[in-house]
């Protein structure tokens, strides 16, 4: 196609936002352009360098593009780039920094399942899954991606307001010898040592130990 006159201001802050390796390219609209701006996106595998267009993100007016599928191999690193169009004018291609899915992703907290008896609570933690192409696709736990993955568990006694802290490698924890009829709130965090990654703490899951039948 005829070369457009590329003096449109550039898209800004082109970067990947990645959670559990769902890798989405984001950017801000060019300064002062208002509505009507369209964009196209391309990406490349670092070291191969052939730029590949993303058809689903051609002539789009939104400022994001999901490149999870194209960047699913976390043993590779990637660049992505965005170009803006408006009224026959275009911007330059604006690139991300080099994106390493393994180290640049954020990890969600684990899911927490809690059950209780009279004097104990049992906690089962589940690490989030790596993004997958389709709901029916093969599930890969982040535990497989990060073998050194550990859990930090916080247990709060609602009566005494005291919080205890456990660091465990496997995904189950039983806390025995608790006070009957007392509410305990549990939250957990994922901690990977190499590379250094840490999720936030999950929301708190509260459960009460059963009342002492003999009392």
């Amino acid at each position: 196609s005829g070369e457009l006159y590329c003096s449109l201001p550039n898209p800004r802050n082109v970067h990947f936002e990645s959670i559990n390796m769902k890798n989405v390219l984001h950017w801000s609209a060019p300064e002062g352009t208002g509505d009507g701006v369209l964009y196209k996106v391309k990406y490349s595998v670092y070291g191969i360098g052939k730029w590949i267009r993303k058809p689903e993100c051609r002539k789009i007016n939104r400022t994001w593009c999901d490149l999870s599928s194209e960047t699913a191999d976390y043993e590779e690193q990637y660049y992505a780039s965005v170009k803006a169009f408006l009224n026959g004018m275009c911007s330059d291609w604006m690139e991300t920094t080099r994106f390493n899915p393994l180290t640049d992703t954020k990890i969600d907290p684990p899911t927490v399942n809690v059950s209780s008896t009279e004097k104990s609570i049992s906690i089962i933690l589940t690490a989030p899954e790596k993004w997958k192409r389709s709901p029916g696709g093969e599930s890969v736990s982040l535990l497989q991606v990060y073998p050194g993955l550990q859990y930090n568990v916080s247990v709060l006694n609602k009566k005494t307001k005291k919080r205890w802290f456990f660091s465990i490698s496997n995904n189950t924890l039983v806390v025995p010898w608790l006070e009957p009829g007392t509410s305990y709130c549990v939250s957990a965090q994922i901690h990977v040592t190499t590379p250094l990654l840490r999720s936030g703490f999950s929301k708190e899951y509260c459960i009460a130990t059963l009342k002492d039948k003999t009392a």
């Binding site: 670092y46 360098g49 052939k50 043993e75 590779e76 690193q77 660049y79 080099r98 180290t103 590379p195």
Partner: peptide, 25 residues
Amino acid sequence: RSGFNAIKANIQARDPIRTLSILSH
């Protein structure tokens, strides 16, 4: 790793060549 993370963006920005990798291709 922590030393590298401190300068990763700076160093990679000095390398404009996308089509060649030393270690991975």
